[in-house]
Amino acid sequence: MQNSHSGVNQLGGVFVNGRPLPDSTRQKIVELAHSGARPCDISRILQVSNGCVSKILGRYYETGSIRPRAIGGSKPRVATPEVVSKIAQYKRECPSIFAWEIRDRLLSEGVCTNDNIPSVSSINRVLRNLASEKQQMGADGMYDKLRMLNGQTGSWGTRPGWYPGTSVPGQPTQDGCQQQEGGGENTNSISSNGEDSDEAQMRLQLKRKLQRNRTSFTQEQIEALEKEFERTHYPDVFARERLAAKIDLPEARIQVWFSNRRAKWRREEKLRNQRRQASNTPSHIPISSSFSTSVYQPIPQPTTPVSSFTSGSMLGRTDTALTNTYSALPPMPSFTMANNLPMQPPVPSQTSSYSCMLPTSPSVNGRSYDTYTPPHMQTHMNSQPMGTSGTTSTGLISPGVSVPVQVPGSEPDMSQYWPRLQ
C-alpha cells in the first residue's frame, strides 16, 4: 500500500499530492522566468500547473527564495509595531506611495530583511487598517496617535501638521516623493554593498519588468496595427511575429492590442446598429396606417339613396333571421326581375335548405315592403301603392349592394327569390 497518492495534472505532468515540487523543477521555473518566458509558457514547457508556477515565482520575487514554506503551523507575524509605524510614516510623507514602493524602502533602510519582509498584500492590509482606524477615531485622537508614531512633539492640530517642515499644504506631496526618490538612490547604494547585491538587483529588475506600465504606442505603430486590423481581426502567430519585427513591439503586446481592438470594434458596431435601427424607425405612426385595407374592405359607393341603408337594423327591421341572411350572402350585381318571367313554384328541397333563413311567422307573405323604405322617402312611396304591378321595390342582398326588384302586385311571395340566388 502506497503512503502517498501520485497523479497526472491537466498538462500531463506527474505530481505527488500534498508534497511540494522538487527543487530542480523550481530552479528551472526561475531560470525560464529570467530568460523572459511568460508564466503560461513555463507552465506548458515544464508541465506544471499555472497556479503552481505563479505561486513559486511570486514567492521568489518577494523573498528571493525558491524553497517551499513549512507545511503546517502558523507563519510568524511580520507586521510588527515597528514595521507598522514605518509604513504609516512613509504614507504620511508621500500619500500616493504604492505598497511595493513601501516594501522596497523597508528593505533599503534595513527595517526588514528578506526573511521577515511583509508581502505587498500585508502592507496593503496595514494601510487599510490605518485608514479604518482613522475613520473610527476622532480628529484629536487621530492626531495624537500619528504624533506618537512619528515621534515628534510638534502641533498636529492642523492639517499642514501632517507634513512636517512644510508650510504650503500643496507642497508636502512633492517633497515626500522627492525624499522617497532619494531613498531609492540609497536603495541602490545599500544593496550594492550587501553580499547578495547582484541577486537582489536582478530580482528587482525582473520584478519591475513584470510590473509594467501601460504600453505607449507611437503613431507609426498605431498606423501599422490599424492597417493589419483592417486586413483581418484575428491575425495568426506568423502575422503577429512579422508585425512585431516590423514595428519593434513584443508579440504578446500585439496580441493584447488586437484583443482590445476587437472589443472596441464590437462596441462601435453595436452603436452603429442602434443608430441604423433608430433612423429606419419613423418618429410617429401615421393615422391612416393604423387601418389596414386588408382588414377593412372598402364599401362601394351607393348608386341610389335607398342603398345607403345596408342592414335591417338601420331600417328599423327587427327580424334577425333576414338580417343574418342578407349579411351572409355574397355580393351580387344589380339585376331586375321582369313581370314576364315565369313564376316557378319553389322546389321543396330548395325551400327546406333555406328554411332556417325565413321567419317562422306566416304573415311574411302579407307584409308590405314599406318597412324598408327610409324616412325621407315615405311620402313618395305612399303616393304609389304597392298593389300595382309596376311598383318597384329595392331588396338588399349584402352591405353596400342594392338590387332593384320588380315585385308582382298580386302576391309578394318571398319564396320566388331563392331559386334565382343559387
Rank of each mutant, 00 (worst) to 15 (best):
G13V: 01
K145W: 10
F98S: 05
G138T: 14
G51M: 03
V8P: 04
A131S: 08
T80L: 07
G64H: 05
E101I: 09
A33D: 07
Q89Y: 09
S6K: 14
I102C: 03
A33W: 07
Y60E: 07
T63P: 00
R128L: 04
G36V: 01
N50Y: 15
V48W: 00
L46H: 05
N17K: 15
S74Y: 02
S43C: 06
K91P: 01
V126M: 07
K75L: 05
S132N: 14
A88F: 08
I45D: 09
I29T: 03
L57F: 01
C52F: 00
R147D: 10
V48N: 04
M142L: 11
L21S: 04
Q136D: 14
R105D: 07
S49V: 02
T63V: 04
G110Q: 14
G73K: 05
T25K: 14
I97F: 12
E93I: 13
N9T: 05
N116D: 06
S96W: 08
P20Q: 02
K55R: 00
I71H: 13
G73H: 03
T113K: 12
N124E: 03
Y60Q: 00
P76D: 02
I45C: 09
A37W: 12
A37C: 14
L107C: 08
A131E: 11
V14Y: 13
G13R: 09
P39Y: 07
G138H: 14
C112H: 06
D23N: 10
S6H: 15
R59H: 06
D41A: 07
L32T: 03
P22K: 07
G51P: 00
Y90H: 14
P68F: 06
G18T: 00
V16M: 15
G13T: 01
E133D: 14
G13C: 00
K55A: 07
R19F: 04
S108N: 13
P76V: 07
D140T: 14
Q10A: 14
V111L: 09
L149F: 11
L149A: 14
T80I: 06
G7Y: 08
T63Y: 00
Q136F: 13
L107W: 10
Y90M: 09
E101D: 06
N17I: 15
S54M: 03
A70H: 10
P76H: 03
S85G: 11
V83G: 03
P39V: 15
L57K: 03
Y61T: 07
E31W: 14
Q10V: 07
W100G: 06
V111P: 13
S54A: 06
S6F: 15
N50V: 12
V78Y: 01
L130V: 13
P39D: 05
Q89K: 10
L32P: 00
Q135E: 13
H34N: 14
R38F: 01
R92K: 14
Y143R: 14
T25N: 03
S85F: 08
G73D: 01
L11V: 06
K28W: 06
A37Q: 11
C112V: 13
S35H: 11
Y143S: 14
S49M: 00
G18S: 02
G12Y: 03
G138Y: 14
P68H: 05
E133Q: 15
K134I: 07
G73C: 02
S6Y: 15
R147V: 12
I42A: 01
V53G: 01
S24T: 11
R69N: 10
R19H: 05
S54Q: 00
P81I: 07
G18M: 01
N114P: 13
K75T: 05
I87G: 02
P22H: 05
N124F: 04
Q136W: 11
Q135G: 14
K145G: 12
I56M: 04
Q135R: 12
G64K: 06
T63W: 00
K55E: 03
V111E: 05
A37Y: 15
H5R: 15
A79T: 15
Q135L: 11
L149C: 15
Q89C: 15
M142P: 14
D104Q: 14
G138V: 11
S6V: 15
S24P: 10
V83T: 09
L127P: 00
D144S: 13
P22N: 01
I117Q: 15
A33M: 10
S96C: 06
L46E: 03
I97S: 14
P95N: 12
Q2C: 12
G72K: 05
V30N: 02
N124R: 11
P95L: 09
S35Q: 13
C112P: 06
Q136M: 11
V16A: 10
E93A: 08
R105L: 13
C94R: 15
I117H: 11
N3C: 08
S85L: 09
L107F: 12
R59Q: 05
D41H: 08
G141K: 09
G12H: 02
G36E: 04
H34K: 11
H34M: 13
N9M: 03
V111Y: 09
T80A: 02
I45P: 02
E109Q: 11
A70M: 08
R26D: 02
W100N: 07
R69Q: 06
L106A: 00
I66T: 07
S24Y: 11
R38G: 03
L21K: 02
Q89I: 14
I97K: 15
G64S: 03
E93Q: 11
M142D: 08
G36C: 03
S65N: 06
K86Q: 08
Y60G: 01
E93V: 07
R19Q: 04
L146R: 14
V8W: 05
S54V: 06
P76N: 02
S132V: 09
S49E: 00
P22C: 06
S54P: 00
A79M: 13
E62Q: 13
I66G: 02
V84E: 04
Q2F: 10
V53F: 00
S96H: 13
K134F: 15
N116Q: 09
L106S: 02
E101A: 10
H5K: 14
R44I: 05
N9V: 02
R125M: 01
C112L: 05
R92S: 12
G18I: 00
N150A: 13
Y90A: 10
P95M: 11
S74E: 01
E62A: 15
H34T: 13
G18L: 01
R26I: 02
C40I: 11
